[in-house]
Amino acid sequence: MTTHALHDTGVLTGRSLRHILRSPDTIITTAITPIAMMLLFVYVLGGAINTGTDGSYINYLLPGILLITIASGIAYTAYRLFLDLQGGIFERFQSMPISRSSVLWAHVFTSLLANLVSIAIVIGVGLLMGFRAQASIGGWLAIVGILVLFVLALTWLAVIAGLSAKTVDGASAFSYPLIFAPFISSAFVPTASMPSPVAWFAEHQPVTSIVDTLRALFSGQPVGQEIWVALAWLLGILVIAYSLANLIYRRKIS
Protein backbone atom coordinates (compact mmCIF):
# COMPACT_ATOMS: atom_id res chain seq x y z
CA MET A 1 0.00 0.00 0.00
CA THR A 2 2.70 2.51 0.91
CA THR A 3 4.63 1.98 -2.31
CA HIS A 4 1.34 2.40 -4.14
CA ALA A 5 0.71 5.62 -2.24
CA LEU A 6 4.11 6.99 -3.30
CA HIS A 7 3.60 5.88 -6.89
CA ASP A 8 0.08 7.32 -7.05
CA THR A 9 1.19 10.59 -5.49
CA GLY A 10 4.05 10.79 -7.99
CA VAL A 11 1.75 10.18 -10.95
CA LEU A 12 -0.81 12.72 -9.76
CA THR A 13 1.87 15.28 -8.94
CA GLY A 14 3.16 14.87 -12.49
CA ARG A 15 -0.34 15.62 -13.69
CA SER A 16 -0.72 18.89 -11.79
CA LEU A 17 2.82 19.97 -12.65
CA ARG A 18 1.77 19.61 -16.29
CA HIS A 19 -1.09 21.98 -15.53
CA ILE A 20 1.40 24.54 -14.28
CA LEU A 21 3.78 24.07 -17.19
CA ARG A 22 0.85 24.61 -19.57
CA SER A 23 -0.23 27.79 -17.84
CA PRO A 24 3.05 29.27 -16.59
CA ASP A 25 1.15 32.52 -16.04
CA THR A 26 0.14 31.10 -12.66
CA ILE A 27 3.76 31.27 -11.55
CA ILE A 28 4.34 34.63 -13.23
CA THR A 29 1.22 36.26 -11.72
CA THR A 30 2.26 34.84 -8.38
CA ALA A 31 5.63 36.54 -8.67
CA ILE A 32 4.58 39.78 -10.35
CA THR A 33 2.55 41.40 -7.56
CA PRO A 34 5.27 40.90 -4.94
CA ILE A 35 7.87 42.21 -7.40
CA ALA A 36 5.75 45.30 -8.08
CA MET A 37 5.39 45.81 -4.33
CA MET A 38 9.11 45.42 -3.92
CA LEU A 39 9.75 48.07 -6.61
CA LEU A 40 7.20 50.39 -5.04
CA PHE A 41 8.56 50.08 -1.55
CA VAL A 42 12.22 50.25 -2.47
CA TYR A 43 12.13 53.04 -5.09
CA VAL A 44 9.08 55.08 -4.02
CA LEU A 45 8.30 54.67 -0.34
CA GLY A 46 11.50 53.18 0.99
CA GLY A 47 13.43 56.46 1.04
CA ALA A 48 11.10 57.77 3.72
CA ILE A 49 11.16 54.59 5.84
CA ASN A 50 13.62 54.45 8.68
CA THR A 51 14.14 50.86 9.67
CA GLY A 52 16.64 51.71 12.37
CA THR A 53 19.09 49.21 10.86
CA ASP A 54 22.26 49.73 8.91
CA GLY A 55 21.55 47.63 5.81
CA SER A 56 19.74 48.75 2.69
CA TYR A 57 15.93 48.81 2.73
CA ILE A 58 15.65 45.93 0.27
CA ASN A 59 17.54 43.72 2.70
CA TYR A 60 14.95 44.68 5.30
CA LEU A 61 12.01 44.22 2.93
CA LEU A 62 12.73 40.98 1.06
CA PRO A 63 11.73 38.41 3.72
CA GLY A 64 8.25 39.93 3.99
CA ILE A 65 7.94 40.03 0.20
CA LEU A 66 8.76 36.32 0.07
CA LEU A 67 5.92 35.56 2.48
CA ILE A 68 3.51 37.62 0.35
CA THR A 69 4.68 35.66 -2.70
CA ILE A 70 3.82 32.39 -0.99
CA ALA A 71 0.49 33.69 0.30
CA SER A 72 -0.58 34.60 -3.24
CA GLY A 73 0.89 31.40 -4.71
CA ILE A 74 -1.14 29.02 -2.57
CA ALA A 75 -4.39 30.58 -3.82
CA TYR A 76 -3.78 28.60 -7.02
CA THR A 77 -3.67 25.36 -5.04
CA ALA A 78 -7.14 26.03 -3.69
CA TYR A 79 -8.23 26.99 -7.19
CA ARG A 80 -6.86 23.84 -8.85
CA LEU A 81 -8.27 21.57 -6.16
CA PHE A 82 -11.66 23.25 -6.49
CA LEU A 83 -11.63 22.73 -10.28
CA ASP A 84 -10.83 19.03 -9.80
CA LEU A 85 -13.79 18.69 -7.47
CA GLN A 86 -16.05 20.54 -9.87
CA GLY A 87 -14.91 18.73 -12.99
CA GLY A 88 -15.72 15.20 -11.88
CA ILE A 89 -12.15 13.93 -12.22
CA PHE A 90 -11.92 13.97 -8.42
CA GLU A 91 -14.77 11.42 -8.27
CA ARG A 92 -13.11 9.36 -10.95
CA PHE A 93 -9.98 9.19 -8.80
CA GLN A 94 -12.07 8.24 -5.76
CA SER A 95 -13.64 5.33 -7.64
CA MET A 96 -10.21 3.99 -8.65
CA PRO A 97 -7.94 1.72 -6.61
CA ILE A 98 -5.52 4.49 -5.69
CA SER A 99 -4.46 5.55 -2.23
CA ARG A 100 -6.88 8.04 -0.70
CA SER A 101 -4.32 10.54 0.48
CA SER A 102 -2.38 10.77 -2.77
CA VAL A 103 -4.99 13.05 -4.36
CA LEU A 104 -4.32 15.75 -1.77
CA TRP A 105 -0.58 15.22 -1.46
CA ALA A 106 -0.19 15.65 -5.22
CA HIS A 107 -1.64 19.16 -4.91
CA VAL A 108 0.54 19.87 -1.90
CA PHE A 109 3.78 18.83 -3.63
CA THR A 110 2.80 20.80 -6.72
CA SER A 111 2.21 23.84 -4.56
CA LEU A 112 5.59 23.38 -2.93
CA LEU A 113 7.46 23.18 -6.23
CA ALA A 114 5.56 26.06 -7.83
CA ASN A 115 6.10 28.29 -4.83
CA LEU A 116 9.81 27.51 -4.69
CA VAL A 117 10.08 28.61 -8.32
CA SER A 118 8.17 31.85 -7.60
CA ILE A 119 10.39 32.51 -4.59
CA ALA A 120 13.51 31.96 -6.68
CA ILE A 121 12.21 34.46 -9.26
CA VAL A 122 11.49 37.07 -6.58
CA ILE A 123 14.88 36.57 -4.94
CA GLY A 124 16.49 36.88 -8.39
CA VAL A 125 14.80 40.23 -8.96
CA GLY A 126 15.76 41.24 -5.43
CA LEU A 127 19.40 40.51 -6.22
CA LEU A 128 19.17 42.74 -9.30
CA MET A 129 17.76 45.48 -7.07
CA GLY A 130 20.70 45.25 -4.70
CA PHE A 131 19.60 42.61 -2.21
CA ARG A 132 22.62 40.97 -0.61
CA ALA A 133 22.67 38.04 1.78
CA GLN A 134 25.47 37.17 4.20
CA ALA A 135 23.97 33.86 5.23
CA SER A 136 26.16 30.82 5.81
CA ILE A 137 25.31 27.48 4.23
CA GLY A 138 23.59 26.49 7.45
CA GLY A 139 21.75 29.80 7.33
CA TRP A 140 20.53 29.15 3.79
CA LEU A 141 19.37 25.67 4.79
CA ALA A 142 17.46 27.22 7.69
CA ILE A 143 15.93 29.81 5.33
CA VAL A 144 14.81 27.14 2.88
CA GLY A 145 13.49 25.04 5.74
CA ILE A 146 11.40 27.90 7.13
CA LEU A 147 10.08 28.85 3.69
CA VAL A 148 9.15 25.21 2.98
CA LEU A 149 7.33 25.01 6.31
CA PHE A 150 5.53 28.25 5.52
CA VAL A 151 4.48 26.93 2.09
CA LEU A 152 3.27 23.64 3.58
CA ALA A 153 1.33 25.32 6.40
CA LEU A 154 -0.39 27.73 4.02
CA THR A 155 -0.94 25.05 1.38
CA TRP A 156 -2.91 22.90 3.83
CA LEU A 157 -4.99 25.98 4.61
CA ALA A 158 -5.51 26.28 0.86
CA VAL A 159 -6.59 22.62 0.73
CA ILE A 160 -9.27 23.40 3.33
CA ALA A 161 -10.42 26.32 1.19
CA GLY A 162 -10.38 24.27 -2.01
CA LEU A 163 -12.32 21.40 -0.46
CA SER A 164 -14.98 23.54 1.16
CA ALA A 165 -15.42 26.40 -1.32
CA LYS A 166 -18.74 26.75 -3.10
CA THR A 167 -17.49 29.00 -5.91
CA VAL A 168 -14.20 29.59 -7.74
CA ASP A 169 -13.96 33.06 -6.19
CA GLY A 170 -14.48 31.62 -2.74
CA ALA A 171 -11.69 29.12 -3.31
CA SER A 172 -9.08 31.84 -3.76
CA ALA A 173 -10.56 34.68 -1.69
CA PHE A 174 -9.33 33.12 1.56
CA SER A 175 -5.78 34.08 0.59
CA TYR A 176 -6.43 37.87 0.70
CA PRO A 177 -6.06 38.19 4.48
CA LEU A 178 -2.92 36.04 4.27
CA ILE A 179 -1.46 38.34 1.62
CA PHE A 180 -2.39 41.33 3.74
CA ALA A 181 -1.08 39.97 7.06
CA PRO A 182 2.56 41.00 6.44
CA PHE A 183 1.49 44.67 6.25
CA ILE A 184 0.59 44.61 9.94
CA SER A 185 3.91 43.11 10.96
CA SER A 186 7.55 44.02 10.96
CA ALA A 187 7.77 43.12 7.25
CA PHE A 188 7.71 46.70 5.90
CA VAL A 189 8.39 48.94 8.88
CA PRO A 190 9.58 48.23 12.43
CA THR A 191 6.68 47.60 14.81
CA ALA A 192 8.03 50.27 17.16
CA SER A 193 6.78 52.95 14.75
CA MET A 194 3.15 51.78 15.07
CA PRO A 195 0.51 52.96 17.61
CA SER A 196 0.70 50.67 20.62
CA PRO A 197 -2.42 48.46 20.05
CA VAL A 198 -1.38 47.87 16.45
CA ALA A 199 2.21 47.31 17.50
CA TRP A 200 1.03 44.77 20.08
CA PHE A 201 -0.89 42.87 17.41
CA ALA A 202 2.00 43.12 14.95
CA GLU A 203 4.50 41.80 17.48
CA HIS A 204 2.34 38.85 18.42
CA GLN A 205 1.15 37.68 15.03
CA PRO A 206 3.13 34.90 13.32
CA VAL A 207 4.45 36.94 10.38
CA THR A 208 6.67 39.15 12.55
CA SER A 209 8.53 36.27 14.15
CA ILE A 210 8.98 34.55 10.78
CA VAL A 211 10.11 37.75 9.03
CA ASP A 212 12.51 38.65 11.83
CA THR A 213 14.00 35.16 11.78
CA LEU A 214 14.44 35.18 8.01
CA ARG A 215 15.96 38.66 8.14
CA ALA A 216 18.47 37.59 10.77
CA LEU A 217 19.36 34.46 8.80
CA PHE A 218 19.80 36.37 5.51
CA SER A 219 22.07 38.93 7.16
CA GLY A 220 24.08 36.29 9.02
CA GLN A 221 23.02 37.62 12.44
CA PRO A 222 22.15 35.38 15.41
CA VAL A 223 18.45 34.48 15.30
CA GLY A 224 17.85 34.45 19.07
CA GLN A 225 14.54 33.32 20.56
CA GLU A 226 12.57 34.49 17.53
CA ILE A 227 13.24 31.32 15.56
CA TRP A 228 11.53 29.16 18.21
CA VAL A 229 8.50 31.40 18.19
CA ALA A 230 8.46 31.25 14.40
CA LEU A 231 8.82 27.46 14.35
CA ALA A 232 6.11 27.06 16.96
CA TRP A 233 3.72 29.15 14.83
CA LEU A 234 4.64 27.32 11.62
CA LEU A 235 4.34 23.83 13.07
CA GLY A 236 1.18 24.78 14.97
CA ILE A 237 -0.56 26.11 11.85
CA LEU A 238 0.71 23.18 9.80
CA VAL A 239 -0.59 20.53 12.22
CA ILE A 240 -3.98 22.20 12.68
CA ALA A 241 -4.49 22.93 8.97
CA TYR A 242 -3.35 19.41 8.00
CA SER A 243 -5.68 17.75 10.52
CA LEU A 244 -8.63 19.92 9.57
CA ALA A 245 -8.05 19.43 5.84
CA ASN A 246 -7.93 15.66 6.27
CA LEU A 247 -11.04 15.69 8.42
CA ILE A 248 -12.93 17.62 5.74
CA TYR A 249 -11.51 15.35 3.04
CA ARG A 250 -12.60 12.17 4.83
CA ARG A 251 -16.08 13.57 5.30
CA LYS A 252 -16.17 14.50 1.67
CA ILE A 253 -15.20 11.10 0.33
CA SER A 254 -17.26 8.88 2.63
Binding site: R22, G87, G88, I89, E91, R92, M96
Partner: peptide
Protein backbone atom coordinates in the same frame (compact mmCIF):
# COMPACT_ATOMS: atom_id res chain seq x y z
CA UNK B 1 -14.96 1.60 -13.28
CA UNK B 2 -17.29 4.54 -13.11
CA UNK B 3 -18.28 6.92 -15.85
CA UNK B 4 -20.18 9.57 -13.99
CA UNK B 5 -22.95 11.83 -15.10
CA UNK B 6 -20.52 14.61 -15.87
CA UNK B 7 -17.53 14.03 -18.09
CA UNK B 8 -14.55 13.36 -15.85
CA UNK B 9 -11.59 14.13 -18.06
CA UNK B 10 -8.68 16.45 -17.45
CA UNK B 11 -9.21 19.27 -19.97
CA UNK B 12 -5.64 20.54 -19.68
Amino acid sequence: SLTGQFTAIDPV
